[in-house]
Design a binder for these strands. Structure first.
Lengths: 124, 124
DNA sequence: GTGCTTGCAAAGATTTTGCACGGCC
DNA sequence: GGCCGTGCAAAATCTTTGCAAGCAC
């Protein structure tokens, strides 16, 4: 169960660690293929999942497709309904903090995700 | 382009309009099939989309699968990471209101969705 | 050597679509 | 009758998985 340090994992991590564009698995695959032409898409998926399990990536599901976001810190996302681009957002009221359920509900909230939808600057 | 009132659309709407369990297209299909054994899954999808476009339903994408929620009013959802169930949520601080981006960003926010993740009562 | 990882391809799961027929207006 | 909606099945998307071979430790 220990995670081995393979060249594939390393190359994939290099490809996404500073990435701000919220790439999909396929986009990461295309990018990584330039360094490792024989890598397979399945391997990309498996390693992205590993990185996510490690807490190094966040998986955003937008419109039925996974996007991978290096986990710098929790932040909301803005999704343009016209072009589909995903933007990182900083809210004014900076910490509208973690929403909390009444304790008596018995639900345990471990994380949350706020998504804003609308039209981005370029599309308006 | 006008929406015709077909029996299929009606039956589908009847099946979801009071529904609080956030069913998937497939679950709605199974339900509707009891009244209309020959209805097709494609028709269910097409009509659910029509209802969503009409503003009668909200489509929640959870874990790569669409769930359909009659749109009573905007509310956050709690998704149990253990059993996958989706719950409607009312926050304490009732209106943590619509988050707003700084106006100068040029982004237009038309809607937003807050999702909480964790473990529900039955799964803990 | 042991057992996690990989590449490849096939299978899965969900949703969309083409087409000819049928039914609403 | 015109046209949108339907049923059916095939296609499309995106993701996961089985398996034998390979590599990390």
């Amino acid at each position: 169960m220990s995670t081995r340090r393979t060249r594939q994992l390393e190359v994939i991590w290099e490809a996404v660690k500073g990435e701000m564009s919220h790439p999909t698995a396929d986009q990461i695959y295309e990018r990584v293929r330039k360094d490792m032409p024989h890598i397979s898409l399945g391997t990309v998926y498996r390693n992205l999942q590993k990185l996510a399990a490690d807490g190094k990536l966040q998986i955003l599901t937008i419109d039925r497709t996974q996007h991978f976001d290096p986990l710098l810190e929790k932040h909301p996302h803005f999704i343009c309904e016209s072009c589909g681009k995903v933007y990182d957002v900083t809210l004014d009221r900076s910490d509208e903090a973690a929403p909390v359920l009444s304790p008596e509900t018995g639900f345990t909230v471990t994380s949350h995700q706020l998504s804003l939808y609308g039209t981005c600057e370029m599309c308006s």
